[in-house]
Design a protein around this nucleic acid. Structure first.
Lengths: 279, 279
DNA sequence: CGCGTTCTTGACTCCTATCAAGGAACGTGG
DNA sequence: CCACGTTCCTTGATAGGAGTCAAGAACGCG
């Protein structure tokens, strides 16, 4: 029932649980997906690089919206959520972050983070200071009214270090486009199905079982993120359970019939046929 | 009734209506908003720069989805729409483009455009070849499986030319975020109100009257873009007309009570109070 | 054990989509 | 100039999906 929890522990073992300057990129498990590693590989990393890793407790924030932008973050372990509080004081969940993923890039233009990010469970993150991308010492990165313009000053020397940033931004754009599509064109059931498949794929990419999901976020967070009512989420979980597509035990979800789930998302109301084929 | 059409003509006068290599950036009206100008200012532009301007007839496309990416575009005059055809053959409108605005940036990561773009009326565009950003001759930009990685090769020389690209991408991200918010949290009426305000602001920025809008797109395009039924758009126009917030004459929209329109978008169903205050 | 938080389930309402029909503008050809 | 078809838009009737309101259940915690 909680093999997932064991996985979390297993991953945590490889991490340094105290905040410290990172001298360990060479041995970091996340190398293949880390934009920082791309930049520092072959270089000597020292305390002045500004790379920092840190353990975050559940509910604790990494940064808050309107904090001064001073770098992007990579999740080493644990799960995080992004959100902002709108003019009416209502929370808007803007995303969830899994091990190996990046967040905080959105602050780069204005010089301030747009979202707050907080831990859903105990996790550890790696801060990648902007200076690593610009190639300039961190202290020089005084952020003016137009941060991006200032960036150009830092690129007098050699290969542009912005390519990894652009990759991240491109990925952000295409993820946002998918969200627009989901919110605009999909009914509640397909939206939730898409969400589950997305979580599943990202869990798999982080080394977890794609069919055993532990949702670290509440129903409220999910409903807010998917722009649905909390009750709708609850009803849909029950419905998918009744259709034997998933099993639901509080926040532990098992995907019992992946093809049916995929068909549901793709083909609208044709889930029965897929169910017949595979169950 | 058609003061807007006159404006279009006025702007067109300043443009070169045939496709030709651009030697006129120095005198271009769009300089302040053009990322290309930022790159070429102070330089001699010749035929080899690859800058190209072109007149597009209504309904004609600039490029099609899955065409090979070979640069981004700026609207010099006229109005354009972006869209793609999904797996089921259904058109999805992804945006509209006004004079001075940029499109085509989304192709940069994959090396292929994601959307098709076509003219809603007669217009002219300026193609800004990727080489202008990378600083390499156009012929060298052979696009591999990972286009962005290749970009790094082109940045051995001097100031990073990617800063303007990153600015555009940042703007794209924040516009997409607004769309997510609109689709997720706003009811149909507020969605359409937001759309009208957006059009109005962009028209104003392009030098038109913010209160006299000519919609170059059909109701179908609007409904598709806003993810609403065509009939809903029609009904809401009628309703806003009845409330004296706008007047509607086919595609000519007059904003009669801007504060009420803004209040409607902000405060939900409180439009009557704003109407009382200002009308 | 009691309490608060989180989640589930039911009843009802409302917004928007869908289906259907008709009207207005436009271009074409007679 | 008018008849005609086409496209685009409007308006009405109806239905369904998801939200809201409300009550209760399950779990965690002190």
């Amino acid at each position: 029932m909680n093999g997932i929890v064991q996985n979390v522990v297993a991953i945590n073992r490889d991490h340094h649980e105290r905040a410290s300057h990172c001298r360990h990129c060479q041995s970091c498990m996340k190398k293949p997906v880390c934009p920082a590693y791309e930049l520092v590989s072959g270089q000597q990393l020292d305390g002045e690089s500004g790379m920092l890793q840190k353990t975050i407790q559940p509910g604790q924030s990494v940064f808050r919206a309107s904090d001064k932008f001073d770098g992007i973050y990579m999740v080493r372990s644990g799960f995080f959520k992004s959100f902002f509080i709108d003019a009416d004081g209502v929370m808007q969940v803007t995303g969830f972050h899994f091990p190996g993923e990046i967040f905080g890039i959105d602050g780069i233009e204005t010089g301030f983070y747009n979202d707050s990010v907080e831990a859903l469970d105990t996790g550890s993150i790696c801060k990648i200071p902007l200076s690593l991308f610009t190639g300039s010492p961190a202290r020089k990165s005084s952020i003016g009214s137009d941060n991006l313009l200032n960036l150009s000053e830092y690129n007098m020397n050699g290969i542009s270090r912005m390519v990894p940033l652009m990759k991240i931004m491109s990925r952000t754009i295409s993820r946002d486009r998918n969200m627009i599509f989901a919110l605009g064109k999909l009914c509640a059931k397909r939206r939730l199905g898409t969400f589950l498949l997305d979580i599943s794929a990202r869990m798999a990419q982080s080394g977890y079982d794609a069919n055993q999901l532990h949702l670290f976020m509440s129903r409220t967070d999910i409903s807010n993120y998917l722009c649905l009512a909390l009750e709708t989420i609850s009803r849909l979980f029950a419905q998918l359970h009744a259709e034997n597509i998933i099993s639901v035990d509080r926040r532990d979800i098992k995907i019992l019939n992946m093809p049916a789930l995929q068909a549901l998302v793709r083909d609208d109301a044709t889930s029965e046929s897929a169910l017949a084929q595979t169950a």
